[in-house]
Design a protein around this nucleic acid. Structure first.
Lengths: 121, 121
DNA sequence: CGAAACGTCAACCATTTGGTTGAATATCCC
DNA sequence: GGGATATTCAACCAAATGGTTGACGTTTCG
């Protein structure tokens, strides 16, 4: 069920939607109340909420005539994990790996570290 | 100089671009070599690289007739920090904060926790 | 010099996105 | 029932996105 990273990241790419998420951090909110601080129409906010829902970042539950919006942190967490994993691989490759090379192959020929043409024909 | 989160997140929203980033994790690469595994045109990849550059996620340096692409982890890290901070605030608000409320205001009127209309006119 | 390799630019196209407005639907309350 | 409230739907629009192709400028190499 985990929504694709595509959906999560593109949902996060809009400042209005990031603001909405931070608003929902404090409390669950009704659609009308989410829309209140913004200058755009209610319909526009409704669409934004649809995008966030589709990305799994929030859920919406209708109670009576009011639709409550609730933060769903799991989707965010998944993307966060991706980024952290990426960051760790990066740290691994660019730092630890080079250090490893220099230690392991100590005194090897003066390779130009970090620059290696892949697939040179 | 830190590029806006908008640019970073929307750059990350495309799977082709995420793949490119992961390729650059291993090594700096020439534009042509980045394009090689993909089925789209070189021009399309060139545009993707432009988007990544614009977001600050990579840098490009021309040496001779070859333009080398290099991962720039800082921009990614900034977005990662945003997400982690968000996650931490979430943990704070939804768990600790409610526990705090219940403890601190013990036995208060039966507030319906988590439901508060802001700006009721 | 001239051809090949590297990469971008410009024009074009289809689709998506983010916004609008006005009508429609559902619920609450008198 | 009927009016107010809450929210979405549908149609529309402008701009951005992701792709194509073909022409163009640079740099290398024979």
């Amino acid at each position: 069920m985990a929504p694709a990273l595509d959906l999560v990241f593109s949902a996060l790419a809009d400042p209005t939607r990031r603001t909405i998420l931070s608003m929902l951090l404090e409390d669950d909110m009704a659609v009308t109340d989410v829309a209140e601080p913004f200058e755009m129409s209610l319909a526009a906010i409704s669409k934004h909420l649809g995008v966030l829902t589709n990305a799994g970042l929030i859920s919406q539950e209708k109670r009576g005539r009011v639709k409550w919006c609730k933060l769903e942190p799991d989707a965010l967490r998944e993307a966060s994990v991706w980024m952290q994993a990426f960051g760790q691989m990066e740290a691994l490759d660019l730092d630890a790996f080079e250090a490893f090379l220099e230690t392991e192959l100590e005194g090897g020929a003066q390779r130009s570290v970090g620059v290696a043409r892949p697939t040179e024909g």
